[in-house]
Design a protein around this nucleic acid. Structure first.
Length: 479
RNA sequence: UCCUCCUUAGCUCAGUUGGUUAGAGCACCUGACUGUUAAUCAGGGGGUCCUAGGUUCAAGUCCUAGAGGGGGAGCCA
């Protein structure tokens, strides 16, 4: 019977990696006396003439492992080069630690220096840095505890999203990143072109001649995969997308990115109630999994940035979401006695302050609001019989506001066409979308979850630029 | 895009009613120290006070414009 170590060796060989133990594995091992090889980046080195202590991290866990090096054995020259930020390989014996602060350590027998990091120019110090400063060195910030934690959580959430939908029988649909449609009206778009923008070909009536462009037409980066996801749902029944999304809005807020990731499930034979059920189950699933799998990282972020983080996650995971109509929300707001900067009235969209009041003060739970006036929502949303509201739903979370926006879709060809006309949407560009209503239409629903909004909630970070590795915002596309 | 606050050493910041040579902590460099825990102790080097104008005998400090950043708002996910 092969032991775990043997299996790991085989796995590592398959991956083309020489046998190496990850820091996470070493820290939880009790095989004292065993010789291990660890590789990683140095967080700090301290000590005296006789003995040196090196904190090593390889990103497998938030915790560092302590390497103990006998100074005479390795020599001053080598140890002096092992500074914060340098990369080393250490082979040594796993030991119970004599010192406080860690259970195990590695007594080094061999140290190989892969890469030095000049201490006078390496920007990361062992002291804490502000998040604003770290944004300027986004190429190095994954080496900090905070961003290590955030990126591990980001991975865990992305994986959990795929697992949730896969286990429910959804198919992952790859919708296009480059789109020819500018119909959804979800926001300003980034143009995609290979034309020489300083000297584009012109038509006779002095307009840019996109017929000569790469695709023979105007194209943009997608603002949503929803319309294409509907095509998938009306064939495979349940699909979801999970991909990059682009908005060229000049939004300068801690909640907006020009490039972000969105998850959009779309389900045939599904009404607005089923849609809300799925959204709630989905979010709770992710939170439970998060607490189960990312405990140490969450604990660190809670201690560092947000004392209430764990409680808030648990509270949302364990409580029913409140479900109210737009009309009820308006009544609660006007009857609340609360003074708002922008007083609300029926027909106007809810302001951030209104959403926060409902979620954080009035209900103290996530709230799902449905039945918005059709005037303030998109053309594709299913119209209610009252003729004035649509089956939209917004899921509002504490701290971050709208985390999900969705709806039951209008499957009736006549109603949909009428709405397209009323809202002046170019019908010709949507012939393929309308075809699904011509041929075998079906009731269906879906929603969009902003991945980074979810990340804000689960990490306790307060700026969306700190939950994506390389944020793109107005005036910033470095790295 | 609007409102508001900020920008001084590598980092985080102090700098009085405008007044000599702009400071601190950490980091860095040198040295000391036999098990450290963001090690400790002693010493040292380090400045385009965001940029450009202006007011003044004198500007880090006051005024104007611009750039960058934070927070709030709008748009939204």
């Amino acid at each position: 019977m092969p032991d775990n170590c043997f299996i790991r060796k085989i796995k590592n060989q398959l991956m083309g990696i020489k046998a190496r133990t990850r820091v996470k594995e070493a820290l939880s091992s009790k095989e004292y006396g065993k010789e291990l090889t660890l590789k990683g980046w140095v967080r700090t080195r301290r000590g005296n003439k006789k003995i040196a202590f090196i904190s090593l991290n390889d990103g497998s866990t938030i915790n560092n492992i302590q390497i103990v090096a006998d100074v005479p054995l390795f020599g001053d020259a080598l140890l002096k080069k092992i500074t914060t930020g340098s990369c080393i390989s250490v082979t040594g014996e796993l030991k119970e630690s004599m010192g406080k602060g860690q259970n195990v350590e590695i007594l080094a027998k061999k140290i190989e220096l892969y890469g030095t990091a000049d201490p006078s120019s390496y920007p990361l110090q062992k002291k804490g840095h502000t998040l604003e400063f770290l944004r300027e060195i986004a190429h190095l910030r994954p080496r900090t505890k905070t961003f290590g934690a955030v990126l591990r959580i980001r991975h865990a959430m992305a994986y959990a999203i795929h697992k949730f939908f896969n286990d429910k029988g959804f198919y992952y649909l790859h919708t296009p990143v480059i789109t020819g449609a500018d119909a959804e009206g979800a926001g300003e778009m980034f143009r995609v072109t290979t034309l020489d923008i300083s000297n584009p070909p012109m038509t006779e009536d002095n307009k840019v001649d996109y017929k000569q462009d790469f695709f023979g037409r105007e194209t943009n980066l997608t603002v949503s995969g929803q319309l294409e996801a509907e095509l998938g749902a009306l064939a495979l029944s349940e699909v979801y997308t999970f991909g990059p999304t682009f908005r060229a809005e000049n939004s300068n807020t801690p909640r907006h990115l020009a490039e972000f990731w969105m998850i959009e499930p779309e389900m045939a034979f599904c009404d607005i109630e089923d849609n809300m059920d799925l959204a709630e189950e989905f979010l709770k699933y992710l939170l439970v999994r998060l607490l189960d799998q990312c405990g140490e990282d969450i604990e660190f972020l809670a201690g560092m940035y947000d004392e209430e983080l764990t409680n808030r996650i648990r509270h949302v995971a364990e409580n029913e979401f409140i479900r109210i109509s737009y009309g009820e929300a308006v009544d609660i707001l006007s009857g609340s006695g609360q003074k708002f900067e922008f007083p609300n009235h029926w027909g106007a969209d809810l302001q951030s302050e209104h959403e926060r009041f409902l979620v954080e003060k009035h209900f103290k739970k996530p709230v799902i609001i449905t039945g918005y006036p059709k005037e303030i929502k998109a053309f594709y949303m299913k119209q209610n019989d009252d003729g004035i509201t649509v089956r939209a739903m917004d899921v509002l979370f504490p701290r971050i506001g709208e985390i999900i926006g969705g709806s039951q879709r209008e499957e009736d060809m006549d109603k949909l066409e009428k709405r397209i006309k009323e809202m002046n949407i170019p019908r010709d560009e949507l012939w393929w979308y309308l075809d699904t209503r011509r041929f075998g239409t079906a009731p269906h629903s879906g929603f969009g979850l902003g991945f980074e909004r979810l990340m804000l909630f689960v990490t306790g970070m307060s700026n969306i630029r700190d939950v994506i590795p390389f944020p793109r915002t107005p005036n910033n596309a470095e790295f």
